[in-house]
């Protein structure tokens, strides 16, 4: 979004001019019992550790990272499917960090979720029309032929044939199921949609259809997306800004152009280098990162990427890296941020 790009770089926080969602030093920790001995203190799993970010109205913010990076946990905390251990979640000016019961349910209609597994997220005993119409029936008390009309409109909006309203989810293809999930999510005109790996499980040709649909709906309905994915190309295609997570921390964020063309965190570079490119003439060094991520229960000192980082120095062991602001809302949490050469 142009508003985001236009902001000046001297601001210290991640602020955007008109944020719809602000995460302020948000953490989500879980206690994990690794031993059956009740006297052994449970380990602390820092799924999300002190993350701050803001998402502007109307933009699509991509969150990428590998499994265990905490991106899904952060998404769940952002729409309050999960309560933050500490920190503040602000939605449309309202602190929703510890909202509960009816108050929370009232906010929920403004922030909906599209899940990764389209079949699993649809109740197998309801038909498509019931699934899409349920939020309208419950919240807006829409009934009868008006409900049928609204459901038909929603189905057309997501590219489904309204005559399929009586079909069960099982009878649909993967792409159609995801369209049902999207229709349900937009039925109440939400402000924010969390797309949690919403296109990751789909075949490429269907993935293209669905991501086109998401972009289309954003423009038509003025939606904001928090778009979680593990594939970089799709994030580059649908998002305006992106954040890269590793072991519970936001390592780098900025506009798509800044992060993809001039990544300033070695992990971002590694992710990009490992992402396969469908062009056999490009011969690259295949392995960019050795080994596996360390256990989230036993995080490395200093920088948590240092155990796999090709650039790690002594300072990375001792000192947690600062968040270095690089201008235009681009920032990276690395001792060497700003010193890496621009990618080709």
């Amino acid at each position: 979004m142009s508003v985001t790009q236009a902001r000046t770089s001297d601001q210290e926080d991640v602020g955007v001019p008109d944020p719809i969602l602000t995460l302020d030093h948000v953490s989500k920790h879980y206690e994990v019992r690794s031993s059956s001995n009740p006297f052994v203190r449970p380990d602390l799993l820092r799924a999300v550790d002190d993350v701050s970010l803001a998402i502007g109205r109307g933009e699509t913010f991509g969150l990428v990272g590998e499994s265990g990076s905490g991106k899904s946990t952060l998404g769940r905390v952002a729409v309050r499917l999960s309560t933050p251990t500490s920190g503040r979640v602000e939605f449309d000016g309202l602190d929703i960090s510890h909202l509960g019961g009816t108050n929370l349910r009232r906010v929920r209609r403004h922030m909906q979720v599209v899940f990764q597994d389209p079949l699993g997220s649809l109740n197998p005993r309801m038909d498509v029309g019931d699934i899409i119409g349920e939020p309208l029936r419950v919240f807006d008390k829409v009934r009868g032929s008006e409900l049928d009309d609204r459901v038909a409109d929603l189905m057309r909006a997501v590219g489904l044939d309204p005559s399929r309203a009586s079909a069960r989810p099982r009878a649909l293809s993967g792409g159609q199921r995801q369209r049902v999930g999207i229709a349900r999510a937009i039925s109440l005109n939400p402000k924010l949609i969390l797309a949690d790996e919403a296109v990751s499980a789909l075949d490429v040709s269907v993935q293209a259809q669905i991501s086109n649909l998401l972009v289309d709906l954003r423009e038509r309905l003025g939606l904001t997306y928090l778009f979680i994915a593990h594939g970089l190309p799709i994030v580059r295609q649908v998002c305006q800004r992106v954040g890269v997570m590793y072991l519970g921390r936001l390592m780098e964020y900025g506009t798509i152009d800044d992060v993809f063309e001039n990544p300033q965190h070695p992990y971002t570079r590694a992710l990009m280098a490992a992402s396969p490119i469908p062009d056999p003439t490009v011969r690259r060094e295949r392995i960019v990162l050795h080994g596996e991520p360390p256990s989230p229960l036993d995080l490395p000192s200093g920088c948590r990427f240092r155990t796999r980082c090709p650039m790690a120095q002594d300072v990375c062991v001792d000192v947690a890296p600062p968040l270095v602001q690089l201008g235009n809302g681009h920032a990276a949490e690395c001792h060497f941020a700003g010193q890496l050469e621009a990618a080709a």
């Binding site: 997220s121 939020p135 419950v138």
Partner: peptide, 17 residues
Amino acid sequence: GHLYVEAARSNGFSPAR
């Protein structure tokens, strides 16, 4: 634990529903 129950929750439906 199924996703559609989580989906119902994220839709803001009441526990009874």
